[in-house]
Design a protein around this nucleic acid. Structure first.
Lengths: 241, 241
DNA sequence: CGAGAGCTTGAGTTATGTCAATTCGTGTGG
DNA sequence: CCACACGAATTGACATAACTCAAGCTCTCG
């Protein structure tokens, strides 16, 4: 449990990676992407439940998720936990905590996963001759800020049904960007994790899934979802109050 | 209304600015701070209620708050608003939206204020010979991520009284860092704004203030607060559930 | 095939929201 | 300078969304 297995990497190159169009290099000209090849010197394989990093540990790298899914959570001394994000392939983990040089959250693999390790010192090194790398990092961080503001919006001013609808639509969209179906997918997280993330109890989440299904918005069986009425979900989220 | 008045600046230099120890240059060696003097070419004065930038506008600068206070909010097409942050002097505004090149939130002055305009192209220019500037930007962005995660924690897993206590303690702490009293201060925001930020109604906020006062935790009169029992407030926040 | 974790559903409770009346405070114009 | 008007805050009574506790069901994995 909780082991991090370094993986020997032959083809650990951003320029040849399938995730290039969604990951760190997104939008960069291909000649600059080639110069990123020195950026990833290590990959780590994680088993379900493994901890990628833990709250308080020194931060010296970012992690690009290559495969699988990962959640990040704040852990209070009182024992309460708040999930702050669910990450899919192509997304970057570890952006908080660069302020103090140590992670403010804990990252846990939700299924068998693999991440590319990007050392910050290599970022500094390489960005000397690839200036756009700095822009990419800023862009990614900014996106993370905007993302968490969206969640704030959900938690601060939406009713439970709207939160769950927004959650489903967000997942759907991100999966679609990865080339998966936007209507049929498996949720990697439990009802409890969804509830925690959305500021609801697992029972409320479960009831909402049942209700959405009853109303014909979705079909759901355990963690398998099919979205039947995307428009209605959007309307639900957009509704005031 | 809603005017942004550029201010001629003689002494708009980070190296001589009183905010140096809390603002962008915080922690940088003084010789590097001097090199930041070219960073701020413009200052803008805002009257209470003025909009610094609006959701959707093109972003090409960050703003260092020099004086006053500013709130940022998301504005949904449905008309609902979610306040995502209250900013004090020394804090940097506009970090979201660097991803898409346009602001994702709207920033509004809560009292007469003044901001330093930091153009992103100048950041790129100057960071060529002051590499630590990049670190500073990353640090600030990372801090903003961590900050919004803290708010997520509040909205996702605290009860109303804990949220308000956490809010007060956070304000207290930041004001102390600016050299003001940590126990006596004026809240620049209305009950409604506090409620919106914390995912509560203004009535709930008002009742909580009254209750905290009744229980001897604070004294409060309109927007004037005095914290009487800091420890109890901390305990309240730390309590599970 | 059994045990445990995860999920669903029901019944009853409660924290927080809603609506409404009142007070307080500030700024404006007579 | 006073009085009025308007926005902000307080307080009360009531409504309800979401929580809690509890029971039973259903997968999954060993």
């Amino acid at each position: 449990m909780h082991k991090r297995v370094p993986v020997s990497i032959e083809s650990a190159h951003c320029s040849t990676c399938m995730m290039g169009h969604v990951c760190l290099p997104v939008g960069m000209p291909s000649q600059e992407v080639e110069q990123l090849d020195a950026l990833v010197k290590e990959r780590v394989r994680l088993e379900k439940g493994d901890v990628l990093f833990r709250h308080g540990e020194t931060l010296n790298a970012l992690f690009g998720l290559r495969l699988g899914s990962v959640k990040t959570q704040l852990e209070e001394q009182s024992g309460q936990v708040q999930i702050t994000g669910f990450y899919l392939p192509g997304e970057i983990i570890g952006l908080d905590g660069m302020a103090e040089g140590q992670h403010s959250s804990t990252a846990i693999a939700m299924e068998d996963s693999e991440v590319c390790v990007v050392r910050m010192q290599d970022v500094d090194e390489i960005s000397r001759y690839v200036p756009s790398l700095q822009h990419q990092i800023r862009r990614i961080m900014s996106k993370e800020i905007a993302r968490s503001h969206q969640v704030l919006l959900a938690l601060g001013s939406m009713r439970s049904e709207q939160r769950l609808a927004a959650f489903l639509l967000n997942l759907s969209q991100r999966l679609a960007a990865l080339g998966y179906s936007s209507t049929d997918f498996i949720m990697r997280m439990s009802r409890e994790e969804i509830g925690n993330y959305l500021g609801l109890t697992l029972e409320t989440v479960s009831r909402l899934f049942s209700r959405f299904a009853r109303e014909g918005l979705i079909r759901v069986s355990q963690r398998e979802v099919r979205i039947l009425d995307m428009i209605a979900l959007h309307e639900l989220v957009g509704k005031p109050g």
